[in-house]
């Protein structure tokens, strides 16, 4: 598999507070990578660094040449005073390779084409934002909490759709999610982030990892593998890493 984007030793701090610490991550073509982690773990910041939106990140980020990125942001910040239909919004995409009608059909949002962007529900907006990302037929699809505001049944559909898109375009997918069950069922690679990469790997491996269990609490444990071994650090109240002292 060809590597699309890779970061090595990526660190980021804002206002004197560490947000990311020595993060290594690789996304290859055809692979779905999920970022999970508690609130404030730096998931969105990591995505922003990879997209080149954070100028002050340190470490190395390597992109394959001519990488086309499709980005689905977490929300739309557009002022309601801007009268914009879904169709007009899609036509604002730079260097599209597909038509807005095709993209809307793929995400099942064709009926929204002439609706005002400001009048969409959460789930409808997610489909429109995904269509905008697809217009560029990206090599790498980056989705910041795609299932946000979508009901449970809709979330399953959405993950199935993301899988289909991956199959059709052969693109790599990086997504942030909160719903662990869905992530575990529909992802090739899980990265558990809490400022640093706590653990990563195949969903089944990660769900048995003590670092994962610690982050996501006791209620996850019953359904998964028992706590097997100690890991080498703890987290303080801010989520910073504290090395365990021996003895």
């Amino acid at each position: 598999m060809s590597q699309l984007i890779q970061c090595h030793n990526l660190s980021f701090a804002a206002a004197g507070r560490t947000i990311l610490q020595n993060v290594d991550l690789t996304i290859s073509a055809g692979e779905i990578v999920s970022l999970i982690g508690p609130n404030g773990a730096g998931k969105t910041t990591l995505i922003r660094c990879l997209l080149g939106l954070e100028a002050t990140a340190s470490g190395t980020i390597t992109r394959s040449p001519e990488l086309r990125v499709g980005y689905m942001p977490q929300r739309l910040q557009t002022d309601p005073s801007l009268p914009l239909t879904v169709m007009r919004f899609l036509k604002l995409a730079e260097q599209p390779r597909d038509t807005p009608a095709n993209a809307l059909a793929e995400t099942g949002a064709m009926h929204l084409a002439e609706r005002a962007l400001s009048a969409l529900s959460g789930g409808e907006l997610q489909r429109v934002l995904l269509a905008r990302a697809l217009l560029r037929e990206p090599d790498l699809l980056v989705l910041d909490e795609p299932a946000q505001g979508v009901d449970i049944g809709g979330q399953e559909d959405l993950y199935r759709l993301i899988g289909k898109i991956r199959d059709r375009l052969g693109c790599g997918v990086l997504l942030i999610s909160h719903d662990l069950h869905l992530v575990m069922a529909s992802t090739d690679h899980v990265v558990c982030l809490n400022q640093h990469v706590c653990c990563h790997g195949h969903p089944q491996m990660v769900s048995a990892d003590p670092a994962y269990l610690e982050l996501f609490g006791e209620h996850q444990r019953a359904a998964l593998v028992p706590y097997a071994h100690h890991h080498d650090h703890d987290h303080d109240a801010h989520g910073d890493v504290i090395k365990k002292t021996t003895g």
């Binding site: 922003r48 939106l53 995409a93 730079e94 260097q95 560029r136």
Partner: peptide, 19 residues
């Protein structure tokens, strides 16, 4: 016009798309 509009609608999306 269109580029200014794209930046207004979503600056980060516009930046990722190369504006």
């Amino acid at each position: 016009w269109n580029k200014l509009l794209a930046v207004t609608v979503h600056p980060e999306l516009a930046e990722v798309e190369g504006l």
